[in-house]
Design a protein around this nucleic acid. Structure first.
Length: 522
DNA sequence: GGACGGTGAAACTTCAGGTTGCCTC
DNA sequence: GAAGTTTCACCGTCC
């Protein structure tokens, strides 16, 4: 089918979008990098000539999601004014929500995105413009899977509004076009493979099956796995059993499970070997409940024991231990120019780290450095550095920071639970302090002020710098002075929280989730 | 002659995403 | 592989 598109600019993606706009329709543009998505949206927004009150309001809301807008926020806000947004994992969750919501309502005409919007999110458009079909991976630049192309193409055509949709791939020349047709239009989607065979997953499930009492013996365990898609695909049952046996050995070694004696009268040694019973230890049960990879849990236990034995413990000790887990991956990449900086920090922190440093020639060394860099970022967040600073120092965007913070909090919680079981009570207070500091992104001295509702890192810092250092100070300070620092609404609310009788504030209309967010950002 | 700024070619660097897990301190 | 960034050599201008 030939669709004539007016060539208004040199950029064929923009031409396609302007044509979509002329049809009063919407388009999603898929690209292969975050930077690419931002650039494409920016270029497009300069050509749409769209403006409206709704878009201005949206732009304003997007700009003010963080207490202090980053350059990324400003760039997005500017694009949105003209009906085009970019969308990738680096955006703050609230910004993503706003964009999706306004695209659904039709206020936004275009979203230039990385594959974020191809998976899961229900955001169809009349056109899905697939600009990049190649993407960088560890093996270099390569074509994306057919399945992924289908995911993106599947965004075209909105069930309730359009009877048709168009998925358009962009090619530079005839040869490329032919290749795309051959590979993606006529090509077969890839086979789907079971992910169960991946060791961290397998470890986790073997433990949880035993811990939950779903299986009680080796035989039951093997029966369970023999009925999975993995076994169906793998076919070689003997090899599969060997893998599961290896997992069982690991869990036994780490004392997450124990062999349990059978109650039957007599079983031959041979039979017993084939069908030994298992039960989870108290520790193993908790690990399964926390949904931790047993390897991570074991790593934590080793680190916690070391901390107890050697009295090595400060916030960095725990921060780095959680960064050295599979759960925290992908870690922040250590760029060529950062190498020295991270290594210097490693030397500075060395005495506090609980996970041993591999030799510089070890293939794991780069990973270890990446775990140090990730810990550095989290440490700076706890040191009250803002998003713009983290972006410049570590190349992490607000969305990525939030994802890492959430993971870190869960891992620290798990670490506390394990310390509890191991009776390492003296560690609990220290780890908990790190957890709270991480959650709110503050230095230790602000922790008391954070107990107040409506007070997050920024307001707590303001109070502290004005001499209001604890709840007693909040009581002592004159209301008017507090209003000068925090504004009327918050000041009154805070005074009430410390038990003072003050006039009722005019209720402020709050969006759902705003309070929670203000805890993190405001 | 030397400091300075502008220019363009060459070398270098970077590059997607993410379910649920815990508990409310 | 491609786009963006940094580095560096080279040139012209001005003091």
């Amino acid at each position: 089918m030939h669709i004539p598109i007016e060539q208004k600019t040199a950029d064929s993606v923009i031409n396609l979008c302007l044509d979509t706009l002329a049809k009063k329709k919407q388009a999603l543009v898929f690209v292969n990098t975050k930077r690419g998505a931002e650039k494409q949206a920016e270029d497009l927004s300069k050509k749409t000539k769209l403006r409206s009150i709704v878009l201005d309001k949206l732009s304003d809301d997007i700009l003010n999601v963080l207490s202090k807008p980053t350059k990324q926020c400003e760039r997005l806000a500017e694009c949105v004014k003209h009906g085009a947004a970019f969308h990738h994992a680096g955006l703050h969750g609230r910004q993503k929500e706003l964009i999706e919501e306004h695209f659904r309502k039709g206020a936004l005409s275009f979203i230039c995105c990385t594959p974020t919007l191809a998976m899961g999110v229900d955001l169809p458009a009349y056109r899905a413009v697939i600009r990049d079909l190649k993407r960088y991976s560890q093996r270099g630049m390569g074509f994306i899977p057919v399945l992924e192309y289908l995911q993106m193409a599947g965004r075209a055509g909105r069930p309730k509004f359009d009877t048709v949709g168009e998925a358009i791939c962009v090619a530079d020349n005839r040869m490329q076009a032919d290749e795309i047709v051959e590979r993606y239009i006529h090509g077969q989607p890839e086979e789907i493979y079971s992910k169960l065979a991946v060791e961290p997953v397998l470890r986790t499930y073997v433990l949880s099956l035993i811990a939950s009492g779903f299986v009680r013996t080796r035989k039951e365990l093997m029966d369970f796995f023999s009925r999975t898609f993995w076994a169906h695909q793998f076919e070689d049952i003997e090899k599969l059993e060997a893998i599961i046996d290896r997992m069982l050995d690991l869990l036994l070694d780490w004392e997450f499970i124990l062999p349990s004696a059978k109650k039957d009268d007599f079983v031959s040694a041979d039979e017993l070997a084939k069908d030994v019973g298992y039960r989870a230890t108290f520790l193993g049960k908790r690990v399964a409940e926390l949904y931790l990879d047993p390897l991570t849990a074991h790593g934590f236990i080793v680190a916690l024991n070391k901390s107890m034995a050697t009295k090595t413990r400060n916030s960095v000790s725990f921060l780095h231990t959680i960064c050295h887990t599979l759960e925290m991956r992908p870690l922040l990449r250590v760029g060529v120019k950062e190498f020295d900086k991270v290594q210097a920090k490693l030397a500075e922190w060395d005495q506090w780290l609980l996970v041993n440093e591999p030799s510089a020639y070890d293939p794991d060394y780069d990973d270890y450095l990446a775990s140090v860099k990730t810990a550095m970022m989290l440490n700076d967040w706890m040191d009250e550095k803002d998003d713009e600073w983290l972006m410049e120092q570590y190349n992490v965007r607000p969305g990525e920071t939030r994802t890492k913070l959430e993971l870190a909090e869960w891992l620290l919680y798990s670490m506390i639970e394990l310390s509890n079981i191991l009776n390492h009570n003296e560690l609990i207070k220290d780890i908990n302090k790190v957890r709270f500091r991480l959650r709110y992104g503050v230095r230790e001295e602000l922790l008391t002020l954070l107990k107040l509702e409506g007070i997050g890192r920024v307001r707590a810092r303001k109070l502290y710098n004005n001499g209001v250092k604890d709840l007693g100070d909040v009581r002592k300070i004159q209301l008017q002075k507090l209003i000068d620092i925090l504004g009327k609404q918050v000041a009154i609310s805070v005074k009430k929280q410390v038990g003072e009788d003050v006039p009722e504030p005019i209720p402020e209309a709050k969006r759902k989730g705003q309070l929670e967010m203000s805890k993190y950002d405001a």
